[in-house]
Each structure stands twice: as structure tokens, then as C-alpha cells.
Design a protein around this nucleic acid. Structure first.
Lengths: 151, 151
DNA sequence: ATAATACGAGACTAATTTTATCCTGTTTAG
DNA sequence: CTAAACAGGATAAAATTAGTCTCGTATTAT
């Protein structure tokens, strides 16, 4: 019942790209440094995000990554699914075929419903929202810093 | 974002015990056979359930297991937590200390909220509810069987 | 053109977690 | 006292997660 480290990295990565102007590109190197993600692992994650059309990649000298659409149109669910695949709580509810209890299992519907709940929640969290909160956090930090300097 | 096989076994195990009279005890052997769970693995799971005071164990000749309270008072959350530990979506939100982004991370609250949502849902699912549905399923199956016999 | 830069893809490795199994010890009914 | 049944710890196999490396391909500045 846990998201993986990889997913956490992916979310932070997209969050970082959300704070970048839509015209700029950012190199893996920079994202890795800023978000403290192992460089080569991040490269893999960005491949998945590219394939899911969440980010777009540009090769060559001035290359790098940027979001393929505005943060408003990118949800947490999309990012999670891009790296983890479909959010099924339970193997049975995904593979279906392999469960011997098939029709009579009363637990399946419970897991399926939980899945829907989780999906609904994550679908509602856009990176626009996260970005805004992030800016507010930064400002709050700033105020604190200024105050500290005054004293 | 998945429950483990172990959790699934645990849930099915408690579900089976819910269908047993509160005076009876059931041997590991029987549960394993009925619910198709590897015997020795189930033994381990039952240890955890015992330690979480969800089931009670009885040693010796007429020994076995039974629920330590009525199914109405056992929730899905309790069983899940008994085998998996606290339901934290994200390592940071559990270990806290190790995350470098601490205060400024806007994703943490999202995972925490999701956790609360999942917990709330699972807290509402009691084994009394599951048991009832199970009986209904069984009856439905029965009707179908009878019909089939008639033809 | 070509050299330097930056991502793409796949193979590979290491670490961790999950999924078990087994053995020895303890409890208990008869 | 003995056979039945769980308790607990050590161990092992399998699967998943996390991360690395190398070589290839595209792009741009010169």
C-alpha cells in the first residue's frame, strides 16, 4: 500500500518542470541536482514520462525536457500511472483470471472500490495546484528569512 | 500502491473465521485448505493477527484459532495494519526525518491526505458486512446450482 | 562536415522486500 | 505422558525495486 521511490521521484520531477517557463528546457543533470534524484535513475523515469506524453524531450546541444502541456492539465494520477502502471490494489482485481474465488469473493469489490476512490482523489490533484502551493511555501520561507535578517 | 499477497491472505483468513461460530476453534490446516493459502505462511500470518489481538490462538490437542471479538468489531483497516504496519503511502511521511525537503515539500500533504482517505474507507468495512455479503453470494450460487440441477 | 552535447534504449547489477519453508520448543487435552 | 497444535526464529527462494553503464542517435554551433 505504498508508492515506490520511483513514483516519488517522478512526482518531484514533474513538479520541478512545472515551475519552469513553457519555452525553456531543462537538462536531466539540473533536475537531478535540484530534486536530489540519482541522475541515471532519473533518466529512466523521464523516459517513462516522455512515453506517457507528460513531458517532451529534446536532444542535442540545447536539449533537455519540458512539460508537454500546462501543469493545469497534468494530474497526479497520470504521473503515478506513467511509472507504476494502473493503480490496482490487488493482483486478483487486475489479472482476474488467476483468482480461484472468482464470482464468490466478496473482498474483490472492496479493493475495486478503494481503487476508484484513490484514482478519483489523484485525478483531482493537478500540478497547477501543487505549483501554487509551492510558491506560497517559498514566499513563506522568504518572509521568515527576511525577519531573521532583521533581528 | 498495492496490497501484498500476505494481506490478501490475512483478509481471507479473517473472513473465514468470521463464518465460524464464536465458540469453535479452527486449525491452521483447515483454514489453509479452505482458503487456499500455503500452510506455513498462514501460520506466520496468524501469528501477526494474534499479536494484533484480532484472533486468539489455543494450543494443544483441541486447539486452533477463533476471532477475539465479533466480526462487527473487526475492520479491514485493522487487519491490513496488523500485517503491513501503518498505511503510509510514502516513506517520507512515515520516517519523516530522512526527507531533505521537509517543510517546503508540497507533495507530502497530498500523500498524507490520501492516507487518511484510504484509512477512512477501510475503517468502515467491517467483517460483519463482508460476512453478510458472503452469505448472500453463497445463496445466489445455491439457487443457480439448484436451477442447474432441475434442468 | 564535424565535434560536442544531450537524450534513448536495453542489458545488467545490487539491494530490498515478499513469499514462503523448516526446525525446535512450548502448551494442553485426554 | 504423549500426541496434537501453535510460537518463534533461522533460513531460503523469488520477485520487485533501485540504480548503473554502454553504446546509439539526434541536434546544434562552428
Amino acid at each position: 500500500m505504498e508508492i515506490t521511490q520511483e513514483t516519488d521521484y517522478a512526482v518531484r520531477c514533474v513538479l520541478y518542470l512545472s515551475s519552469i517557463g513553457p519555452e525553456q528546457t531543462v537538462r536531466i543533470e539540473e533536475i537531478a541536482a535540484e530534486m536530489q534524484i540519482p541522475r541515471s535513475f532519473l533518466a529512466k523515469i523521464l523516459q517513462k514520462l516522455t512515453q506517457a506524453d507528460i513531458v517532451r524531450s529534446y536532444r542535442g546541444v540545447k536539449g533537455g525536457f519540458r512539460l508537454s502541456r500546462p501543469p493545469k492539465e497534468i494530474t497526479l494520477l497520470q504521473v503515478v500511472e506513467a511509472v507504476e502502471g494502473p493503480v490496482a490494489m490487488n493482483r486478483c482485481t487486475r489479472e482476474g483470471s488467476l483468482c480461484d474465488f472468482k464470482k464468490t469473493c466478496v473482498v474483490h469489490p472492496v479493493w475495486r472500490r478503494l481503487r476508484t476512490i484513490v484514482e478519483t482523489y489523484m485525478k483531482d490533484i493537478t500540478f497547477e495546484k501543487l505549483k501554487k502551493e509551492r510558491r506560497q511555501e517559498a514566499m513563506a520561507q522568504n518572509i521568515l528569512t527576511v525577519r531573521r535578517k532583521k533581528t
